[in-house]
Design a protein around this nucleic acid. Sequence first.
DNA 1: TAGATTGTTAATCGATTAACAATC
DNA 2: TAGATTGTTAATCGATTAACAATC
Lengths: 206, 206
Amino acid sequence: MDKKISDKTINRLTLYHCILNDFIESNINTITSVQIANLLKIDDSQVRKDISLLQNSGKSRVGYYVADLKKAIETTLGFAHPKNAFIVGAGNLGLALAKYDNFLNYGLNVLALFDVDPLKVGVTINKKEVYHISKLPELAKQMGVQMVLLTVPRSVAQKTADFLVNSNIKYIWNFSPSILDVPKGVEVWNENLMGNFLHFSYKISN
Amino acid sequence: MDKKISDKTINRLTLYHCILNDFIESNINTITSVQIANLLKIDDSQVRKDISLLQNSGKSRVGYYVADLKKAIETTLGFAHPKNAFIVGAGNLGLALAKYDNFLNYGLNVLALFDVDPLKVGVTINKKEVYHISKLPELAKQMGVQMVLLTVPRSVAQKTADFLVNSNIKYIWNFSPSILDVPKGVEVWNENLMGNFLHFSYKISN
DNA sequence: TAGATTGTTAATCGATTAACAATC
DNA sequence: TAGATTGTTAATCGATTAACAATC
C-alpha cells in the first residue's frame, strides 16, 4: 500500500537529502523538522508530514537521526534499484553529465555516450565510450538499456527522439529546450533549463 | 496590478513557449488550447486559464495566434529585461552553460566565468573570458552583476557562496547538489539535478 | 447557420498550515 | 519534572477540472 507521493513532496525529499549529506559531513547526528524548515524556508509541519510518509520515525525532544532519515529517503525514492542509461549527444552538456559521478550514488548508471560526429566517436569520457549513434539500437538491446539522457541540439531533438523510440527506449530525460512528441508507452521528462531560469528570474523581479 | 503568477503556472508557460517555437518553425500560425494540452498531457481549461493571465486573447473557432502568444509569454515572464550574470566554476557544467547561447534569448546575459584553477584562467569560451575568482568582487562592481550561476563542486559550494555574498551577489542559481545557507536579502535557486532525476525515476517505477 | 473554440465561473480536489495531544 | 519535539487531525488555502455561455 505505497501511498503515491506527490511531485512536490518528492522534490522536497530530495532537498532534505542534500541537507542530510551536509549534516553527515559535519558529523551532526540529529536534525529537527524546524532546522530543515529554516534552511529551506518552508513550514516545519510540512517537513514532519513529508517525513511521516517514510519508513522512519523521529524522537520527541531529539528530532530525527540523520543517518536513518537519509536511508529512509533513499529507500522510498528507490535509489536502491539502479537504472542503466545512455547519454545521446556528446556535446558540452553531454560530457558534463558523463563526468557527473554523483549519478551512480543516486541509482543512475550511465554506460555509454552516442553522437553523430565521427570526431567524437571512440573517445572515452570518465570510463564511458562514445559510440556512433547507429550502434545504439544494438547496444541498447545487448545492455538492456531503456533510458536516455537526451542532450542533442534543439534542431534534431524530435528526429532523435523518434529514432530512440524505434530503438525501444522507453524513458527520455530531455535536456533540449523542445517538447517531444512521443507515442504512448514512452515517458519524457523535460529538464527545461530555460524554464527554470525564467522561473527564478520572474520570482526575483516581482 | 500584476497578478502574482504561481510557480507551476510559470513552468507551464515556459513549456507552452517551447511548443510555440516548434510551431513557428513548422510555419503554423494558430494553435488551440486542446493542441497544447494534448502535447503536455494536461487539461485544456488549464491551458486557457494560464493564457488568460497574459496580455493576449484568442479567437473563437480559431485558437491563438502563435506569434502573438509567444510574445505575450515573453512579455509577462520578463525576457525583455536581460540580467547580467557570471558563471562561477569553469568545470564541465560551467563550460556547457557558457556555450548555451540560448540564454541570451531568454534574458540571461553571461558576461564572464571564474575559477580557482590557474590553468583555466585566461581561456576564452564562447567570447567569455575565464578570470581568477579573486577578480570577481571588482568585476561584479564594475559590470553591475548581481547574479551568479554556481557550478563548483559540492565540497566548496558553501565556502564559495559565502564569498559571493561578501561580493554583493544577490542571486545565486545553484547547480551544485548542496543547500546553501545564505543571509536574508540573498536569493538562491536550487537546480537540484539529482532531485529531478529521482523525481523522474520515482514516477516511472510506480 | 452550425459548430468549434475561447473565457470564465463554480465545483472539486489536493496541498499547506495551524494547532495540539502524545511522547520522551 | 518541565519543556522540546514529533505525529496527526482539522482548518485553510490554492490549484485543477468541469461546465457552459459568449463568440466568431
